[in-house]
């Protein structure tokens, strides 16, 4: 799963700390999400999408594995 958090954040000129404050997580979690080292829970994904005023699908990109 990939996400557009870094892209959306930079487009809106929001710092990682501000986003972390807005969704009530630590900055380390935002860093891990942006680098793809951590996948957000459904609740956090919802909070982040709501923060940007978008849907979860617009922020988080679910890639189906090709068998």
């Amino acid at each position: 799963m990939t996400n557009r958090i870094a892209e959306l954040r930079k487009a809106r000129k929001i710092s990682q700390a501000e986003l972390a404050d807005g969704v009530d997580v630590t900055r380390q979690t935002i860093i891990s999400l942006e680098s793809g080292r951590y996948n957000a829970s459904l609740l956090l994904a919802h909070k982040i999408a709501k923060y940007f005023g978008l849907t979860i699908e617009e922020v988080f990109l679910f890639e189906e594995e090709i068998p």
Partner: peptide, 12 residues
Amino acid sequence: KEYERSEHDERN
């Protein structure tokens, strides 16, 4: 506040 947030942070 930071301490409480890090305590409840889902990744932590």
